[in-house]
């Protein structure tokens, strides 16, 4: 982009006045709080579009990315975690640990750039970046989403796998499993039917809590792959100093995280009937 300066001083001044940007920051902030309480997230100072509408248009894009990322992480993490737990102390387990630590240590943008280099530049089998909505062209959409969701999923898988391994190990130590084993139940059935289900609770928690990390990852991933989602909106509003958009985004993002945490709590009671939400056995 060749930068040329085009705005004239009067025009700029008028715009700032119209948007209330010439008021002190504190006044602007309280104006904003006031509007938020009345359910109005305001408008962008950049292009005047409604903050709420923009955010709600972006969220589904990021949710698709989140969904695919979680699926990928689960597909990798759960079997890998089970194998590592069952074969504890073997070569499988050690290399699993190392790979998991490696996964955690790779910033998602690094994974992303490596994937682009491999699949788009070297092999030329995937489009390097961009976004098409699934309604418009589902197969193109999925093609474009493979690398972004992989780069998010791999990192998440590392954490989930470790959790799966340690919680399964814990469950396998429990008395009822030992009793069942002593009774001669086949080990595989035992692990799949009883132990895995019980260890899933902590895995769900981890996956749920990762939503925070995930949204952070989306900021970078969407930037690398030019996906016009929620994360990219935040980055753009920071660069454009679009504070209404940024404040609104952060508010909505916190709300999403809190919502997911509630969902995680609720899913406990499903996975472990002994836990009753709001019940007395705390």
């Amino acid at each position: 982009m060749i930068l040329g300066q085009e705005a004239s001083p009067e025009a700029l001044h008028n715009l700032r006045h119209k948007l209330g940007l010439d008021k002190p920051l504190s006044v602007q902030y309280f104006d904003w709080i006031n509007d938020v309480i009345r359910g109005d997230l305001g408008n962008s100072v950049r292009d005047n579009r409604s903050v709420a509408q923009t955010i709600f248009k972006k969220i589904p894009i990021t949710l698709e990315l989140a969904f695919l990322g979680i699926i990928i992480s689960i597909i990798i993490a759960i079997p890998a975690g089970i194998i590592a737990a069952v074969k504890k102390g073997t070569w499988f387990d050690y290399s699993g640990t190392l790979i998991a630590l490696g996964g955690v240590s790779m910033p998602s943008f690094w994974v992303g750039i490596m994937l682009v280099y491999l699949f788009a530049v070297k092999l030329d089998i995937l489009p390097p970046s961009g976004y098409v909505s699934p309604g418009e062209d589902l197969s193109e959409n999925l093609k474009l989403m493979i690398m972004p969701s992989l780069s998010l999923g791999i990192r998440m898988a590392a954490v989930t796998m470790r959790m799966m391994r340690s919680s399964l190990l814990e469950v396998l130590q429990k008395d009822y499993i030992r009793t069942a084993e002593a009774k001669g139940l086949p080990r595989l059935t035992l692990i799949i039917k009883h132990a895995v289900r019980n260890s899933l609770i902590s895995v769900v928690t981890v996956v749920g809590l990762q939503i925070t990390a995930f949204l952070g990852g989306a900021v970078i991933t969407e930037t690398i792959f030019a996906i016009p989602g929620f994360g990219r909106l935040i980055v753009q509003s920071i660069f454009n100093r679009d504070f209404p958009m940024l404040q609104g985004s952060i508010l909505i993002m916190s709300a999403m995280v809190i919502f997911v945490n509630i969902l995680v709590d609720l899913s406990y009671s499903y996975l472990d009937p002994r836990i009753k939400i709001g019940g007395g056995n705390v």
Partner: peptide
């Protein structure tokens, strides 16, 4: 500096030097 901020500071002469051009 983000482009808008840069132009803002340029206009208000709150700067020493700026790398910026004119599209002509």
């Amino acid at each position: 500096l983000e482009f808008g901020t840069l132009v803002d500071r340029l206009m208000s002469k709150n700067y020493q030097a700026a790398l910026l051009g004119w599209s002509g």
